[in-house]
């Protein structure tokens, strides 16, 4: 069965919050996945003491695990592809002509070494 990297919607009505998960393609959206590799909060936030009005979105991602799952053939959905391309794991799929492209920064080193061949513990 195809293993996908996709979002699972949690949160509340009008307050979405996503887990970035690795799961079998035919399982339900919010069913227990193979592994949770991060979160994506799609609600734009302001910095507390920033008056410029610039908004940001928070993502948590285990880059090492994401690389591992891409390496063994997990298929990211478009949204996850976009998120993964931001940390340089994948080439960006869609480029919008005439718009400034995000600058791809090499990812910082992971806080601890992950054993990449072990089964996920979740």
């Amino acid at each position: 069965m195809v293993v996908k990297m996709r979002l699972a919607r949690f949160g509340r009505r009008n307050a979405p919050f996503y887990n970035i998960v690795v799961a079998h393609a035919r399982t339900a959206r919010n069913s227990r996945p193979l592994e949770v590799i991060g979160t994506y909060d799609p609600i734009p936030k302001k910095d507390t003491y920033d008056t410029s009005g610039k908004l940001h979105k928070d993502i948590k991602l285990d880059i090492t695990r994401a690389k591992y799952w891409v390496g063994v053939g997990a298929q990211p959905t478009d949204v996850v592809w976009r998120l993964l391309s931001m940390v340089g794991i994948l080439e960006p799929k869609y480029r919008q002509p005439g718009k400034p492209q995000p600058e791809y920064v090499p990812p910082p080193p992971a806080p601890a070494t992950n054993t990449e061949t072990t089964e996920p513990s979740s």
């Binding site: 991060g38 993502i59 285990d62 990812p107 979740s122």
Partner: peptide, 15 residues
């Protein structure tokens, strides 16, 4: 990563 509209802040975690 600044996409113009929003800045995406990606924190590396160890799940």
């Amino acid at each position: 990563v600044d996409t113009g509209r929003f800045e995406f802040r990606i924190e590396n975690v160890n799940v």
